[in-house]
Each structure stands twice: as C-alpha cells, then as structure tokens.
Amino acid sequence: MSGKNDPAERQNPPHVPAPGTLMVDVHDRVGEFRGEAYGFWYLRPVTGGIEWSVHPADVRPASPAQRLRAENARANARSRGELL
C-alpha cells in the first residue's frame, strides 16, 4: 500500500541532490538545486534570477533533453552578457 498519504513515505524524505543538480518542478520550470531549509528545496533559474522554493515531493531530476536545453540557455545568456 503506497501513496502520498502513507505515513512511512513522509518519514523518508527524498534524497537531497547535490548543489547545482538540474531539477524540474510541477510547473515544468527547470532550476539548479541550491539547498534546503525548513522542509523546502530551493531552485534557481539556470539563466540567473530569484530562487524559488518547492516541496521536495513536487520536483524531479531533469531529463537529458531538459538538461541540454537548460545548458544551452545558460550558454546563450552568457554570450549576451546577461550571466557571468
């Protein structure tokens, strides 16, 4: 019996990714994992900007295609001088 309301699953939080790992939230926003605080994970847009908080159950690792698009967006932002 497994589900979102299973108390055993709530006691075992998802594995915390390494900083910089590309993650995708429930709104399909891709961001770099920055850290965790107060039960939330913090992601930052790959092209720079303000971090946002997400519940760990609402994110997943980025797919290879999503990682490629994010890395391309970062390179383009750098070439335009928008990102150091």
Results as ranks from 00 to 15, higher is better:
residue 1 M to S: 13
residue 1 M to E: 11
residue 1 M to C: 09
residue 2 S to T: 15
residue 2 S to L: 13
residue 3 G to E: 11
residue 4 K to F: 14
residue 4 K to S: 15
residue 5 N to Q: 14
residue 5 N to V: 10
residue 6 D to Y: 02
residue 7 P to F: 14
residue 7 P to L: 14
residue 7 P to D: 11
residue 8 A to I: 15
residue 8 A to W: 14
residue 10 R to W: 11
residue 10 R to M: 15
residue 12 N to Y: 04
residue 13 P to I: 08
residue 14 P to R: 10
residue 14 P to L: 09
residue 17 P to H: 06
residue 19 P to R: 08
residue 20 G to E: 09
residue 21 T to K: 04
residue 22 L to K: 05
residue 23 M to G: 03
residue 23 M to K: 01
residue 24 V to G: 05
residue 24 V to S: 06
residue 27 H to Y: 09
residue 28 D to Q: 10
residue 29 R to I: 00
residue 30 V to F: 02
residue 30 V to T: 08
residue 30 V to R: 00
residue 31 G to C: 02
residue 31 G to S: 08
residue 32 E to T: 00
residue 32 E to P: 00
residue 33 F to W: 06
residue 33 F to A: 07
residue 33 F to E: 08
residue 34 R to K: 10
residue 35 G to P: 10
residue 36 E to S: 12
residue 36 E to L: 06
residue 38 Y to T: 03
residue 39 G to E: 13
residue 39 G to T: 04
residue 41 W to C: 07
residue 42 Y to S: 10
residue 43 L to D: 12
residue 44 R to M: 11
residue 45 P to S: 01
residue 45 P to Y: 04
residue 45 P to W: 01
residue 46 V to M: 04
residue 46 V to N: 05
residue 47 T to N: 02
residue 49 G to V: 04
residue 49 G to Y: 02
residue 49 G to W: 03
residue 49 G to F: 02
residue 51 E to K: 11
residue 52 W to D: 12
residue 53 S to V: 01
residue 54 V to T: 12
residue 54 V to L: 01
residue 54 V to M: 07
residue 54 V to G: 03
residue 54 V to Q: 07
residue 54 V to D: 11
residue 55 H to M: 13
residue 57 A to S: 14
residue 57 A to R: 11
residue 61 P to D: 08
residue 61 P to G: 08
residue 62 A to V: 04
residue 63 S to P: 09
residue 65 A to S: 13
residue 65 A to N: 10
residue 66 Q to G: 01
residue 66 Q to D: 03
residue 67 R to E: 15
residue 70 A to E: 09
residue 71 E to H: 07
residue 71 E to D: 12
residue 71 E to A: 04
residue 72 N to S: 10
residue 72 N to P: 13
residue 72 N to A: 09
residue 73 A to T: 07
residue 73 A to I: 03
residue 73 A to F: 03
residue 74 R to W: 00
residue 75 A to R: 10
residue 75 A to N: 07
residue 76 N to Q: 12
residue 77 A to R: 06
residue 78 R to G: 02
residue 78 R to L: 08
residue 78 R to F: 06
residue 79 S to L: 11
residue 79 S to W: 05
residue 81 G to T: 01
residue 81 G to A: 08
residue 82 E to D: 06
residue 82 E to W: 10
residue 83 L to I: 01
residue 84 L to N: 05
